[in-house]
Design a protein around this nucleic acid. Structure first.
Length: 417
DNA sequence: CACACGAGCGCG
DNA sequence: ACCGCGCTCGTGTG
């Protein structure tokens, strides 16, 4: 028989008059006021009220433990209501979730609704909530989940649009690893062949993927491509960029690698401002979007200032073209007459389960895995005929992506194919 | 009671 | 002062 032992335990109780709901920004603001923190530099949202988001909670938590506890509660609540309880409520009689995909006209990317399967928590950390949650998403008996990613697809697009051969090449092979290798004085060399360079960069990635510098540079690349400056990087992510200067140093470093990027951003803004739209004839997929406010005149300062579309326009081409690349691939995978057809591999039906911008998630019978790998890889890496490469690049006639494929029993524990 | 909206936060 | 999306919750309105 087990013995029951009573042990003293230390608990903390936070008491406020009446009920307190940590899910209520209004009540959190009241609590902040009670601590005399209201007028702190905490950001004000557009309705003028002080923000109560994670950044503010992090700052206040250094002085009052209760704000750490509130944020912890919010984190758990989010995961439970949206994912654990929220998502399982969508499970059908067959224990599956059947979501719908919709086209969003702005960039022509797909969106996913009822429920959204494109924002399932993702974290490589073993036993993180994200890892454990994805572990619950499994293939049926006799099948495996296969996840196929386009390598750095939006960076590749950015290289192509900015007309930068080196950047295009590095984006395919691993631009983050390249930056890290030089930052850590283990420079890999652009003069190497694609094969050698790719292998070296894969090695760098495997080795340094978890280092802060790798994550920082990855963030800098992504944000710089979409028009962010060092100030925003620091303000949005003070843990990653403790000072504006630290973000600026990394961005300057990135700009030395992509000297044509700033000029291309500027050209895109000028074009969008002049004609009021982007795309159409000059778009690889003929997609088109309208922009009214790249910049406008401000009387108070007597000069032109950045408008609400200032950064939207630099995101437009890479994002929309990446969407087009995915559609090309899907058309091949679903073309019965073509040699990449996979539409019947799941017992006569499609094995495709979700499209997540640069990822194809599929559920494939074990005896069809090899066929799926081959056809899926072929379709994803097929020449993009709507995006020719300049002849003098000597990198082939058309854009070609690289694909990374993983397989596993569930969506968390997967091994490279 | 239903609905709309903003705040907040998850992903690529 | 970073782009794109959808979902949940609290809150205010009719």
């Amino acid at each position: 028989m087990a013995t029951l032992v009573r042990r003293p335990a230390k608990v903390t109780r936070w008491f406020v008059h009446g009920e307190f709901n940590p899910g209520s920004p209004k009540q959190i603001r009241a609590l902040m006021a009670a601590f005399g923190e209201t007028s702190r530099p905490g950001k004000h949202s557009k309705s003028g009220k002080p923000s109560t988001d994670r950044k503010v909670m992090d700052r206040l938590a250094t002085r009052h433990q209760v704000f750490r506890d509130i944020q912890d509660w919010k984190d758990v609540k989010k995961l439970d209501s949206t994912y654990a309880t929220g998502l399982t409520a969508h499970a059908d009689d067959d224990d599956r979730i059947h979501a719908s995909f919709t086209h969003k006209p702005y960039t022509m990317r797909l969106a996913c609704i009822n429920p959204n399967l494109q924002n399932i928590p993702q974290d490589d950390e073993e036993d993180s909530f994200a890892k454990q949650f994805r572990r619950c998403i499994i293939a049926q008996p006799g099948c495996r989940l296969v996840s196929a990613d386009f390598a750095g697809i939006e960076a590749v697009q950015t290289g192509w649009f900015s007309g930068d051969r080196d950047y295009y090449r590095l984006a395919r092979l691993g631009v983050h690893a390249y930056l890290v290798s030089h930052r850590l004085d283990r420079p890999v060399n652009l003069s190497w062949s694609d094969e050698d360079l790719g292998a070296a960069l894969s090695e760098v990635k495997a080795k340094f993927h978890d280092r802060p510098i790798y994550k920082q540079l990855k963030r800098v690349v992504h944000r710089t491509n979409y028009g962010s400056g060092p100030y925003g990087m620091h303000m949005d992510d003070p843990h990653m960029f403790p000072t504006v200067q630290s973000a600026e140093d990394l961005q300057d470093y990135y700009y030395t690698l992509v000297p044509k990027l700033a000029k291309w951003h500027s050209q895109v803004r000028t074009l969008a401002n002049a004609q009021g739209f982007l795309g159409g004839d000059d778009h690889p997929y003929k997609f088109k979007a309208w922009f009214w406010d790249v910049m406008h005149y401000e009387r108070r300062r007597d000069r032109m200032v950045r408008g609400s579309d200032w950064n939207k326009v630099v995101a437009y081409y890479p994002q929309s073209s990446s969407a087009g690349n995915l559609f090309d691939t899907m058309l091949m995978l679903m073309d019965k007459e073509g040699d990449c057809y996979v539409g019947d591999l799941f017992y006569g039906k499609t094995p495709i389960r979700a499209l997540i911008h640069d990822e194809i998630l599929a559920e494939v019978p074990e005896n069809k895995l090899d066929i799926f790998y081959e056809r899926c890889a072929k379709a994803m890496t097929y020449p993009v005929f709507s995006q020719a490469l300049p002849k003098n690049w000597e990198l082939g006639e058309y854009m070609q992506h690289r694909a990374e494929m993983k397989v596993g029993q569930n969506w968390a524990d997967m091994e490279a194919v």
